[in-house]
Design a protein around this nucleic acid. Structure first.
Length: 426
RNA sequence: GUGGGUGUAGCUCAGUUGGCAGAGCACCAGGUUGUGGCCCUGGGAGUCGCGGGUUCAAAUCCCGUCAUCCACCCCA
C-alpha cells in the first residue's frame, strides 16, 4: 500500500491557520502570566540520552517501557525523543550546580510518545511546563498551584477543576499500595475485570477507574494518608491551610494518584468535563530527581496544550482563534507595466509598516478585487494605466464602497493612519 | 499492543435490491470591454484509501492492508 507522502506520520499533525492563531494566543497568554511569577523560559533539546528518561521517570513506568521513540544515533548512542519535559530541565539544572538553587523556569514545546492516538492524545503533542526548584516546602507547592489557577483564568477556561492530594514519601509507597489492596480485597468480586487485574499489578490504578461499580467502592476507601506517616500528613495539612489562605478554588481528592516515580508529597491534576476519556488538562507535583550524582528537588506541572485548546474550543464554541495578519491594503493592478510598479509600491508600504497584499499573476481587476475582499483588507488600492497617466491612485474603502483619487504621499498617510487604528483595536 | 466505527471532488457528505460517480460549500470564468460582498449562468476537478477476490457488471459483497476516529492500557 502506498502511504500518501503528503500526510504526517500517525498521530502527528501539521498546525496551521486557522487553529494556529489560537495556539499563538494561548502561548502568548502563558508567557505573559509566567512573567508575573518571575519564571523564565528554558529550551532544552528534544533529543536526549535514553538513560535520562529511564532514570528520572522510573524504569517500570509505561512511558519508559513502551511509549518512547528510542533509537541509536550515528555514534551508536541510545537516544530518545523526549516524552515529557521535566527530565531535560532537571539535567540542565543539575549541571548548573549551586547556580540552580531556587531556579524558576518554564518550557513550552513538543513531546513524543508512541501511543495509539485518540481524543486528546497525539504522538507528537505540546506541553507547557513549569519547574520551581527547591527542597520540600508547602508554600512553594501552593505557589505552583496558584500559578496554574492563574493560567486557567487567563486562558478563559472556567470548567476546569483542580484536584489535589499527597503522594507521601517514597518509602511509604509500598505501605499505601498494600493498604489499599487490603481494603479492596474483601470486595474484589464487585470490581470490574480490569480492576481485579489491577489489584495485582497496579493497585493504585483502581482509584481512577471510571466504572461506576468500582467508583462506589473507591469512594468508601480510606484516604491514602491513612497509610502514611506523620510527616506526610502534616505536610498535606499545611498545603491545605495555605490553599485556603490564598482562596484557591481547589478540591482535595484523597484518592488522586499519579504514576511517575519521581513524585512525592503534593500532587495535583486538572480535569475538564468536556474532553472525553483523556480529561486531564494538566498534572503536577513535587518531585525529587537524581542525575549523575546530583539531586534536584522541586515542584512543577505540565499542561497538555492540545487539551487546553480543545477545552477552550468547546467552552467558547469558537472553532479557532482570531485571524491575524489581515492586510490593511490590497493593491490592484491593471495594464502593462503597472504590476511591477505596484510591487515597488507594496514594498514601500511594507517598509513603512503597512501590511498589504497584491496579486502577482496579472488576473482581471474583478478577480483581484475578489482577492482583496477575501483577504479582509480595509482598503483596496487601485493603480492601473489610467491612474499612472494621471499620477494618482484610487483608494477604495472596502466597507462602504466609497473611493477617492489620491497622490502617493496622501495615500501613504491615509494607510499609516488606518494601520495605527487597526493595531489599536486588537 | 487490544477492540469497535469510518475512508467517495479542496472541504462536509449523499449514493436504494450490485447496473453511466452525485450534491452543497469552496475555487475559476462570464453576466458588468477597470471594481469585491448579494444574485444568475457556466466550468474545472475523483485511482470511490490501497491490493486482491466473487460477478456479465463492484463505491456497493468477501479477504487483506493502510490511514483516521473512539475506547482500553497508560498518561498532559
Amino acid at each position: 500500500m502506498t502511504v500518501p507522502s503528503f500526510q504526517p506520520l500517525q498521530g502527528m499533525s501539521d498546525l496551521a491557520a486557522p487553529e494556529i492563531y489560537l495556539w499563538q494566543e494561548v502561548e502568548e497568554t502563558a508567557r505573559r502570566i509566567l512573567a508575573l511569577y518571575h519564571v523564565g523560559e528554558v529550551r532544552t533539546p528534544i533529543l536526549e540520552p535514553t538513560g535520562l528518561f529511564v532514570r528520572s521517570l522510573g524504569e517500570g513506568t509505561d512511558v519508559v517501557q513502551k511509549e518512547m521513540y528510542t533509537f541509536e544515533d550515528r555514534g551508536g548512542r541510545q537516544v530518545s525523543l523526549r516524552p515529557e519535559g521535566t527530565a531535560g530541565v532537571i539535567r540542565f539544572l543539575a549541571g548548573q550546580g549551586d547556580e540552580a538553587a531556587g531556579a524558576r523556569v518554564y518550557y513550552l514545546g513538543p513531546m513524543f510518545r508512541a501511543e495509539r492516538p485518540q481524543a486528546g492524545r497525539r504522538r507528537q503533542f505540546h506541553q507547557l511546563g513549569v519547574e520551581l526548584i527547591g527542597p520540600p516546602n508547602p508554600a512553594q507547592d501552593v505557589e505552583a498551584v496558584a500559578m496554574q489557577q492563574h493560567l486557567l483564568n487567563a486562558w478563559g477556561l472556567h470548567g476546569a477543576r483542580i484536584e489535589i492530594n499527597t503522594r507521601g514519601l517514597p518509602d511509604e509507597q509500598d505501605a499505601v499500595s498494600a493498604g489499599i489492596r487490603r481494603a479492596l480485597e474483601p470486595d474484589a468480586g464487585r470490581l470490574c475485570e480490569d480492576c481485579r487485574r489491577r489489584l495485582l499489578t497496579n493497585v493504585l490504578r483502581v482509584l481512577d477507574c471510571k466504572q461506576e461499580g468500582c467508583r462506589a467502592l473507591v469512594d468508601k476507601l480510606p484516604p491514602v494518608t491513612d497509610f502514611m506517616g506523620q510527616e506526610s500528613r502534616a505536610y498535606l495539612e499545611e498545603v491545605k491551610r495555605l490553599l485556603a489562605l490564598m482562596e484557591l478554588p481547589v478540591e482535595i481528592n484523597p484518592r488522586l494518584v499519579r504514576g511517575l516515580d519521581y513524585y512525592l508529597h503534593t500532587i495535583w491534576e486538572i480535569k475538564h468535563p468536556a474532553l472525553g476519556a483523556q480529561d486531564a488538562l494538566s498534572g503536577g507535583g513535587r518531585y525529587r530527581i537524581e542525575w549523575e550524582g546530583a539531586v534536584v528537588e522541586g515542584v512543577g506541572f505540565a499542561a497538555g496544550l492540545e487539551r487546553i485548546l480543545t477545552a477552550l474550543q468547546q467552552e467558547k464554541g469558537h472553532p479557532a482563534g482570531t485571524a491575524q495578519g489581515r492586510p490593511v491594503a490590497w493593491i490592484v493592478s491593471q495594464g502593462a507595466g503597472t504590476l511591477e510598479q505596484n510591487l515597488v509600491l507594496a514594498q514601500t508600504l511594507r517598509r513603512r509598516g503597512v501590511p498589504c497584499g497584491l496579486a502577482l499573476d496579472g488576473r482581471s481587476v474583478k478577480a483581484q478585487m475578489r482577492a482583496a475582499n477575501r483577504s479582509g483588507a480595509a482598503f483596496a488600492v487601485i493603480r492601473g494605466e489610467l491612474e499612472r497617466e494621471k499620477g494618482l491612485v484610487v483608494l477604495k474603502n472596502m466597507k462602504d464602497g466609497t473611493q477617492e483619487e489620491l497622490e502617493l504621499p496622501a495615500l501613504l498617510e491615509r494607510l499609516l493612519l488606518a494601520t495605527r487604528a487597526e493595531v489599536a483595536s486588537t
